[in-house]
Write a protein that binds this DNA or RNA. Structure first.
Length: 265
DNA sequence: ATGACTCATTACATGAGA
C-alpha cells in the first residue's frame, strides 16, 4: 500500500495536479492539508470518478483537511478528544481528520502555524500538540487502546525538528518552527511510542516546503516540516519513503510537496 | 529553467501562510 501526505494549498486550485499525482505514483491513500474550502466546495466527484472515496473537513477558506482512498474509508473522525479551539470564544478548526483505510487509521493533520512566538497562535500550537500526543499515546496503550493498532499521523507539522531541516538556522532566530518547545512537542510523539518513518529513507537536507517568495525554490532554500509518524505495528510495515520534489515545479505548484510512504502488504 | 508570492473572499484590499 502506498500512503502519501500533501499540504496542497487549495484543492480547488490544484485538483488536476492531485489527480495526476495519484495516477503517476499509484498512491492508494492521500492525506491532504490546507484544502481551503468548505465540504460542499470540495471537488469530490473528480476523485470519485478516478475510483477513490473522499472524506473532507472544511469550514471556511482557512485550513481544511481531507483523506482520499481507494482501499476503503471507514470510521471517519473530525476531531480528536480534547482538541483545543482557537480564539477568545474557542473555535475547533478543520485541522484533524481520521479514517481507517485498508486497515490503517490515517490522521491527516494540519498543525497550527504558531505565527510569532508572542502570538496566541503559538500557545495554541503547543497546546494542540500536547492534546494530540495524549490521545495518540492512549490509542496504542493497553487498556485505553490497542498496542497492535496501525496508526499513521501524517501531515504538515509546522515544525523543523533539526537545524538542518531549514536552509539557514540563523535566519530563524526568534521565529516559530524551530523553538525548543516546538521540537520537544514533536519528539514527544516518539516518546509516546510512535516512529517518524520518513527520515531514515530520505537524505538529509531534503526539504518539503519552499516559500513562494524570494526565489526560495530555485535557491533550494526550504524547510522540512511535513512528517509521518507511525505506530509500532505500522512502522514495521514501512519499506520506503520519498519526497516528491518535482511537484514544486511547473505551473501553479503548492508551496509544499508530497511525502510518500510504501507499506509492505 | 525550478525565476523574483499565492490563495480565497460579504473581493479591487485584507488575512494567512512560514
Amino acid at each position: 500500500m502506498r500512503l502519501a501526505t500533501w499540504n496542497i494549498n487549495s484543492i480547488r486550485a490544484r485538483t488536476d495536479r492531485a489527480l495526476a499525482f495519484l495516477e503517476r505514483t499509484g498512491t492508494d491513500v492521500l492525506a491532504l492539508q490546507e484544502t481551503k474550502c468548505k465540504d460542499e466546495q470540495f471537488p469530490r466527484e473528480a476523485f470519485e470518478a478516478a475510483g477513490y472515496e473522499v472524506a473532507t473537513l472544511g469550514f471556511s477558506q482557512w485550513n481544511g483537511v481531507a483523506i482520499i482512498s481507494r482501499v476503503g474509508l471507514e470510521d471517519v473522525q473530525t476531531t480528536f478528544a480534547g482538541q483545543p479551539g482557537f480564539g477568545v470564544e474557542p473555535v475547533t478548526e478543520a485541522r484533524a481528520l481520521g479514517a481507517t483505510c485498508g486497515g490503517v487509521t490515517v490522521w491527516s493533520l494540519y498543525i497550527p502555524n504558531g505565527r510569532e512566538i508572542d502570538d496566541p497562535h503559538y500557545a495554541y500550537k503547543l497546546e494542540w500538540l500536547k492534546h494530540l500526543r495524549a490521545q495518540a499515546e492512549s490509542w496504542i496503550t493497553p487498556g485505553t487502546g490497542d498496542p497492535d493498532a496501525q496508526i499513521a499521523l501524517v501531515g504538515d507539522w509546522n515544525i523543523a525538528p533539526l537545524d538542518e531541516d531549514v536552509w539557514d538556522i540563523e535566519a530563524f532566530a526568534g521565529r516559530t518552527h524551530v523553538t525548543p518547545a516546538e521540537r520537544e512537542a514533536f519528539t514527544a510523539f516518539a516518546d509516546a511510542g510512535y516512529t517518524e518513518v520518513s527520515r531514515e529513507h530520505i537524505p538529509d537536507r531534503a526539504f518539503t516546503y519552499w516559500d513562494y517568495q524570494q526565489l526560495r525554490f530555485p535557491r533550494n532554500e526550504g524547510m522540512r516540516i511535513d512528517f509521518t509518524y507511525a505506530s509500532p505495528a505500522l512502522a514495521a510495515r514501512v519499506t520506503g519513503a520519498t519526497i516528491e520534489r518535482n511537484e514544486r515545479k511547473g505551473k501553479a505548484p503548492s508551496d509544499h510537496v508530497p511525502v510518500v510512504l510504501d507499506l509492505a502488504d
